[in-house]
Design a protein around this nucleic acid. Structure first.
Lengths: 157, 157
DNA sequence: AGCAAAATCACCCTAAAGTATGAGCGTTAA
DNA sequence: TTAACGCTCATACTTTAGGGTGATTTTGCT
């Protein structure tokens, strides 16, 4: 299948493609600059822009998957009705993973699976898998019920 | 094994390869350009700075300590649904009818349309009509979103 | 280095939710 | 009294959600 091939070598192909584009661009710039004999500033600026873009792209690519939710500790005997206090114990007992908690929180905000997928930069099928496990672990049959239970457990505001 | 090694450090190797290729390319360009222009120092300096920054950034990013999920402790589940004050104003502004509010509140408990229909002794189609109007009046696209909005408006606990 | 868990994605299928439209029926206010 | 509104129900259709299965990749831990 073409889709399977694409999925398998997507990263490599993208890198290759990017490299090819850069090569082509540099070659083109060189030819232009030599012929017209323009100043180096333009050339260097172009290079700087290209590499800045590359840096940004790399930064996004590298840092996006590394974000994780950090649960800080909670104090006791705070009987605040107004604010939301995250219940770390419930997270343990339910056995929800960090990613599942992410999905659950977005789900509680009324987002569809597709919207959650876009927000987390993953595919719809992945979110479906996550939601299935969430429903299973929270013993809910629908997402609304899962959200309700999660709210009562102190997992979402 | 070589395959395991490749799999493990594939990304790093690719990045390294990419950088090496770019370096080679610039070196090659340098040789050609130095013949026709002598303000190469500015160009080289800029590129050097950019590359240094990129290198530092890459090094930092690649070796950055990953944020771990630390669930520390404890404790005490405060029943945070202590008092719920119904917001009559919101009921006015949204224009929800009494029956629609009934459906909305059951909806917020995670019941399906069929379950709500059974609970209120009406048909499924009736609940569907109600839910449609609820979504319309609350400007929501899904029931989870409607529930979230209703909660923020003080219509449901 | 190797294992286990988590995360990712795909495909197929069914169930539920949501959209659109129309219609009958009772209450109420102009 | 009639126009407006709320409640009820229907039919047909599209979209989203959920269930089940299997697979690969990433990551954490020993």
């Amino acid at each position: 299948m073409t889709t399977a091939f694409w999925l398998k070598y997507r990263s490599t192909l993208l890198y290759g493609l990017l490299l090819a584009l850069l090569l082509f661009l540099l070659k083109w710039l060189e030819l232009r600059l030599i012929m017209v004999n323009h100043s180096f500033e333009i050339y260097a600026g172009s290079i700087a822009i290209i590499f800045t873009a590359l840096g940004i792209w790399l930064a996004v690519k590298l840092t996006a998957p590394k974000v994780k939710t950090v649960v800080v500790e909670k104090q006791v005997f705070v009987d605040n009705h107004a604010e939301f206090t995250f219940n770390a114990d419930a997270l343990q007992t339910t056995g929800l993973s960090t990613r599942e908690l992410d999905v659950l929180q977005l789900m509680a905000q009324g987002l569809s699976n597709q919207q959650i997928a876009d927000r987390l930069f993953v595919s719809l099928n992945t979110i479906k898998t996550h939601t299935s496990k969430i429903l299973e672990k929270l013993e809910a049959g629908r997402r609304t019920q899962a959200v309700d239970k999660a709210r009562k457990l102190g997992l979402v505001p």
